[in-house]
Design a protein around this nucleic acid. Structure first.
Lengths: 235, 235
DNA sequence: CGTAAACTTGATTGCCATCAAGGAGCGTGG
DNA sequence: CCACGCTCCTTGATGGCAATCAAGTTTACG
């Protein structure tokens, strides 16, 4: 794969200029008395805290147990890109680079298991089940990253939001059809690679055309699923 | 991570309408008398052939030994996205999905090692070194996919080409500074998420401003490296 | 109840996709 | 050896989608 060797000026990136809530760096506190397998430590992060920051030395990687996270990269011009949202079961921050390449910010209160990165090889050797799971989760992440790449390049803003809402609805598995979006429009915008104004306009359009309803902010119900699917599969 | 559950109409995607050389599906021939570790088979694919196609049942995954590949996804509107280029040492086609999610097309003649996907778990259990390498390669792929996502969203067409050329030059490690680009402008366009006309215009601009020289097509030399780096790191 | 953040809506601009047409390289066959 | 045809590449003209700038409005929260 093509990789960028240039890392020299990595840390000159200006501080994020976006206007969202600035994530407070909270020192994650290991949960007291957590009895885990060797190498494992359990701990928690409050909403709006960060598990780790872009550029931090990558000492640990994590598995998310509860809550939700966003993976954030800050671009040189001050814009954000959210590479992915994570839900329980997902693997976070695994890489072979010396530093974390993105920040992991808690959208809600989170609990995680922490693994020491330098133990990875011995973990893989000693615990085959763990090794298989690690591999499977990483491969799944790669697949969804490629899929997202295609969406970002070849879909209109409206299409991207349509896909996003479908994915959120499907993931929620709520029985009554109501879904609470935990993230702001700004988060959605940064995930879908568009301006938050554009997200807003697309929401408006979806509501006006009766595809979704949103009586209170961020609580939506998908009324016309077919409309969204047709949108995504239209030539 | 967010994944798309909708797969139903996956195969209705129309045939690629792009005007590049249509990859001939060549039945890859296992190299005779290859003595490998258990589970391994060595074989080769000619230039413009495919190792596997999008939608093929994912029976095997691969490690590239020589040559270069492109990973291609075809979008509903007939456009292509090249998710990545692969060089020797890279892992290709590993996933947990039942079907390959992209085609792997040979840019040049390639030789590969083939692994049976269903053996993955036992491979990981029986060969720790293999497991570690598999994990490392997949994680590396994920990192570069995230990085590429950011570029696609937040960089101008000119910037994207600037990055691409820098990456190609750095990867070639040629002593005299001359680099042969194995791929066409169309491939570059589909990788960088832009029209091939735009690639062409950016090349012209780079040549006119004396940043690169290209006496014969696809043989370039980077004259003013600083210009490209400044471009990438400018606010 | 007041402030700040998030959201919405409108006006304007610009980048780049698209359409269109011509030129250059290259292999093939007469 | 040259002519033909096929790709690939280049350049120009045009238009559209979405970013940006700029106010308002609503929501959240101490």
């Amino acid at each position: 794969m093509i990789q960028t060797a240039i890392q020299t000026r990595h840390h000159q990136a200006p501080a994020a200029s976006w206007t969202g809530r600035a994530p407070r760096k909270t020192a994650p506190v290991p949960a007291a008395g957590a009895a885990m397998r060797p190498f494992e430590t359990k701990f928690s992060v409050k909403a709006d805290g960060t598990v780790f920051d872009e550029g931090d030395e990558a000492i640990y990687f994590y598995k998310l147990l509860t809550g939700s996270l966003r993976l954030v990269k800050v671009v040189a011009d001050g814009h954000r890109q959210i590479c992915d949202f994570h839900v329980p079961g997902d693997l976070v921050g695994f890489s072979n680079a010396a530093e974390h390449e993105f920040s992991a910010e808690a959208i809600q209160d989170c609990t995680l298991i922490r693994y020491r990165r330098r133990d990875t090889d011995s973990l893989i050797k000693s615990d085959a089940a763990f090794a298989c799971e690690l591999q499977a989760l990483t491969a799944r992440g790669l697949s969804s990253a490629y899929a997202h790449m295609v969406r970002l390049c070849h879909r209109s803003a409206y299409d991207r939001l349509a896909w996003f809402l479908l994915a959120m609805v499907d993931r929620s598995q709520s029985s009554d059809g109501w879904v609470a979006l935990p993230m702001t429009r700004i988060d959605i915008a940064d995930y879908l690679g568009m301006a938050h104004e554009t997200v807003s306009r697309a929401f408006t359009q979806l509501k006006k055309s009766g595809v979704i309803i949103e009586p209170t902010l961020n609580h939506i119900k998908l009324v016309d699923r077919d409309a969204l699917e047709d949108q995504l599969y239209a030539a």
